[in-house]
Amino acid sequence: MLASEITGNITTLCYGLGAIGPGIGLGILIGKTIEGVSRQPEIAGKLQALMFLGVAFIELFGLLGFVLVFIK
């Protein structure tokens, strides 16, 4: 199959690429939170709330890509 014969919507591919960034971000964020909790278990609740706040911001970038897939 020739590359020129491939048809379809390029946005699905772009969504895959766009998911890389938030993936790395979530990994760093959650890993650091676990690190923090294991150092200071007494502030686990506070760290968790902060983590969810950060997750919400990072997740948005992935979801924006998801929405853009449907816009043609």
Binding site: A56, F57, E59, L60, L63, L64, F66, V67
Partner: peptide, 13 residues
């Protein structure tokens, strides 16, 4: 906008 888009696209996904 981010509040609305986050919730909506999460449930859609």
């Amino acid at each position: 906008a981010s509040l609305a888009i986050r919730l909506f696209s999460n449930m859609m996904a």
